[in-house]
Design a protein around this nucleic acid. Structure first.
Lengths: 353, 353
DNA sequence: TTGAAAGCGCTAACAC
DNA sequence: GTGTTAGCGCTTTCAA
């Protein structure tokens, strides 16, 4: 026992072969004969040899590691994405370096820097700002493949994301078809340069020739029921309050439902509420939440697939590609025809599950 | 521009100094004079030099990286723990390698192996099984510091965890004091060797001389409302069903509440329900859930602090230490005196929030 | 088939 | 103060 962690050299010394032969044998090179290989394998086993991937990375100029940067992990959908990505990467022999930007550009840049210095082979990133992407585009020059997990497309970077605009459009279209005309929206995206859901909201209103009232658009930075609840209070204090409110994530919607319960508004009889993300709990709120669903597994798998393709490509000048996944509306019991339109609505719907 | 990624050598060539001088200057060694340093810093800036941490790690025999292994990330509390740990580690200049064991010992061992080969300086692990820890204890021989984020103490490994047994005890004690005698428990821990909550449950029953009925203990592997709902159905099919049920996590409790709603049982009038973890949504269920709270930030910070202490200690023979964090009972509106004890209970409590 | 030598990019020991 | 040399553990020529 020369070292706590034996090296190729130690196996070489134990067997009488050179380090090169040992290296070849352990990598099952066909150059090494059967008997030689088995002697070396046996010695490696006895010494409990573990290859030093750091040394290997240095000479091979690839680390088989991928950096994953998320804004934060309050949103369970991002977390699911992370887990599925990690699993897919592990299956391909890649390890995942993980960092959170905490919705902060400086932290994000620090994480990117740390990953580059550690020579990651590629980066998956949910950007803290969907439009300021120059620092990410710069990675192309360093020959580091990147796939964005969300953003406007067309910034010269690969993107695998959801059609958030379409998701929001479907929600508003549905509400308008039910008869709603005053529809509030609580969004968290704009400060981060993500205007997609807001755009979808406005598009749907425009389609139906409903004027856009800026008072009905509340911006709340973050992800928590409390923010949704606050926004609901603001909306209901308006001279002409909405009959339906769309929250850009399920946590907002949960807070909105709570505000309604605490203030005697029955959902959906007196107020329609819609969320976004189809988180597990959205099926268990009172009433169960109408929301927008998409498949985080599909996103993560496509993103990993694309990243590994870019990493393993010999030609590093592949034009960037955008893959957008379609969301769908999940209709549950938090939306209904507005009361003003149907004064004699049966009350049992309000308490049904 | 010799390389895409310039090396010390390139800065040396550009400035006329040796690589050693460049290295010292970039690490702000006092040996290097002011003028020399500024020439070198300027050249490094112009060449957009990024140190290669892999090469540095090889010579310094430390990677400033820590492996983090979680069972899965369905439980938001584990996720919070992970984020706080990552942040704390980043503040100390450590990067986090992340892996999930998916509650599977083979995956867990594979992740540990991958981390060792990558020469992590330490490992934080939420073990897939709380009692089979030999493969983790073995890391001590490899001189790799480990801190467990949950487990029975005393396995010769450092632990930072919660007093789950006490948390469960507080729940059952509370229910008994309210007057409940038939109390069900839905637990997910036993298949993973985690019997702490079940132990706390039985301890509290024993304290009050209530016989333990194995029929009232339902084991469900995993983390989802559906499992809680199923268990509730089983318990209510019993000849002598419980008047209160304790779920070992909030997801179970949410499913239990849902089963009650769907089957006309009013909570807490007809049935008391308690969860565990105090996840954000537990305050927004109908009725708001009585649950057990503890501070995941405290856990993560203590665990990181201990791990960094072990990593930076010169003496590698530090005796293992257990730090257990106290949980507390959060009383909300899902628990009440059992109906059988108070036939004329005011009904407004059942619908209050 | 196996071995010797060079080198990945960096730091550290020792000269000068 | 700065340069020279060696070496971290591995892979990769190139010889033999």
């Amino acid at each position: 026992m020369t070292h706590i962690r034996p090296r190729l050299k130690d196996i070489a010394a134990a067997t009488g072969f050179s380090t090169n032969t040992v290296s070849l044998a352990l990598r099952s090179s066909p150059l090494v004969t059967g008997p030689t290989r088995s002697i070396i394998l046996k010695a490696a086993e006895e010494l409990r040899y573990r290859p030093n991937v750091i040394a290997k990375s240095l000479v091979q100029r690839q680390t088989r590691s991928v950096g994953l940067i998320l804004t934060n992990i309050a949103n369970p959908i991002l977390v699911q994405t992370a887990q599925i990505a990690e699993t897919a990467l592990a299956e391909h022999g890649y390890i995942t370096l993980f960092a959170t930007s905490r919705q902060n550009m400086a932290h994000e840049m620090r994480a990117i820097e740390a990953f580059c210095q550690r020579q990651v082979d590629g980066i998956l990133i949910y950007p803290s700002n969907h439009t300021k992407l120059d620092h990410i585009a710069a990675l192309r020059q360093l020959q580091i493949p990147v796939v964005l997990l969300a953003a406007e497309t067309g910034a010269g970077i690969d993107v695998v994301s959801w059609r958030e605009r379409l998701g929001a459009f479907l929600v508003i279209d549905h509400l308008i078809e039910l008869g709603h005309r005053r529809i509030g929206m609580v969004d968290s995206g704009k400060p981060e340069g993500n205007t997609e859901k807001l755009d979808g909201y406005e598009q749907a209103l425009s389609k139906w020739n409903i004027p856009i009232d800026p008072e009905l658009e509340r911006l709340k930075r973050g992800y928590s029921p409390a923010l949704g609840s606050n926004a609901m209070a603001e909306l209901m204090a308006l001279p002409d309050p909405p009959t339906a409110v769309f929250g850009s994530n399920d946590a907002f919607a949960v807070g909105m439902l709570d505000w309604c319960h605490r203030n005697g508004l029955r959902v959906p009889r007196d107020m329609s509420i819609v969320g976004f993300d189809n988180t597990e709990f959205s099926a268990y709120t009172t009433p169960p939440l109408t929301t927008v669903a998409y498949d985080p597994a599909a996103l993560a798998e496509k993103a990993v697939e694309r990243l590994l393709f870019l990493i393993e490509a010999t030609d590093k000048d592949i034009p960037p590609m955008s893959q957008l996944i379609e969301p769908g509306l999940i209709m549950r019991q938090s939306t209904a025809v507005p009361k003003s339109r149907l004064p004699l609505r049966s009350p049992d719907l309000a308490s049904s599950r």
